[in-house]
Simulated assay, not measured.
Amino acid sequence: MVAVKIGITGPVGSIKAEALQKIMDMLINDGMTIQGVLVKEIVEHGKLKGYSLFDINTKKRVIFADSDIISRVKIDKLGVDTRLLEEILIPSLQKAREEADVIVIDEVGKLENLTKNIQKEIGETLKSEKPLVVTLHKKSRNPVLQEIKALEGIRVFDITPINRNLLPFRVVRVIKGEEGS
């Protein structure tokens, strides 16, 4: 049996993050171990200042993209500390593939192409035999989104202000095998 893979797409903003948090809380309440990484925007005075990465298992948080970081690698015109990002993301996903009941990768499209090592790690995680929940930007031209949509067993849900409260319940049912394709 192929492990359930869930993709959640939607508009920029907190709606995906809120749904993902609700899904994680529900799965944890059901006794499941969740591991992986969450990405959070850092906004100051209404302006995007950076991004942080949070390892769900170790609870370690690092700021990996910031307007003050000088780097050839950029996300939304912000410099990216790829070494710092790899130090957290790679062991987090490796451990998740070994130990987690469900793996979470938040904002996979933003992270995927930053380095070859990260690309390889995310690719291996996407192919793993564990249930997986990823969030993505809704840009259909993004090759990562196309790659995820082509995965065996993938279900992609588009979150909207209308379905935002019900979607987490539906995703949890799919992960637990209570709702078919």
Results as ranks from 00 to 15, higher is better:
Gly7Arg: 02
Thr9Ile: 08
Thr9Gly: 02
Gly10Ser: 06
Val12Ile: 10
Val12Trp: 04
Ile15Cys: 03
Ile15Met: 07
Glu18Gly: 10
Leu20Ile: 06
Leu20Tyr: 06
Met24Gln: 07
Met24Phe: 05
Asn29His: 15
Met32Cys: 11
Thr33Gly: 08
Ile34His: 03
Gly36Leu: 02
Val37Asn: 04
Leu38Thr: 08
Glu44Ala: 11
His45Pro: 07
His45Leu: 13
Leu48Phe: 04
Leu53Ile: 10
Ile56Pro: 01
Asn57Lys: 13
Lys60Glu: 10
Arg61Phe: 06
Val62Gly: 02
Ile63Arg: 07
Ile63Phe: 06
Phe64Met: 06
Ala65Asp: 05
Asp68Gln: 14
Asp68Pro: 06
Ile70Cys: 13
Val73Ala: 13
Ile75Val: 13
Leu78Arg: 01
Gly79Val: 01
Val80Ser: 02
Asp81Arg: 09
Asp81Val: 10
Arg83Gly: 15
Leu84Lys: 09
Leu84Val: 08
Ile88Lys: 03
Gln94Gly: 12
Glu99Pro: 06
Glu99Leu: 15
Val102Asp: 00
Val104Cys: 07
Val104Tyr: 04
Glu112Thr: 12
Glu112Pro: 03
Asn113Ser: 14
Asn113Arg: 13
Lys116Asn: 11
Asn117Gly: 11
Gln119Gly: 09
Lys120Met: 12
Lys120Leu: 13
Ile122Lys: 00
Gly123Phe: 08
Glu124Val: 09
Glu124Leu: 13
Lys127Asp: 13
Glu129Asn: 14
Pro131Arg: 05
Leu132Phe: 02
Lys139Ser: 15
Lys139His: 15
Arg141Trp: 15
Arg141Ile: 14
Asn142Lys: 09
Asn142Pro: 08
Val144Ser: 00
Leu145Cys: 03
Leu145Asp: 00
Lys149Arg: 13
Glu152Ile: 05
Gly153Glu: 09
Phe157Thr: 04
Thr160Leu: 04
Ile162Thr: 12
Ile162Trp: 09
Asn163Ser: 06
Asn163Val: 05
Arg164Asp: 08
Leu167Asp: 02
Leu167Trp: 01
Leu167Cys: 08
Val171Arg: 00
Val171His: 01
Lys176Phe: 07
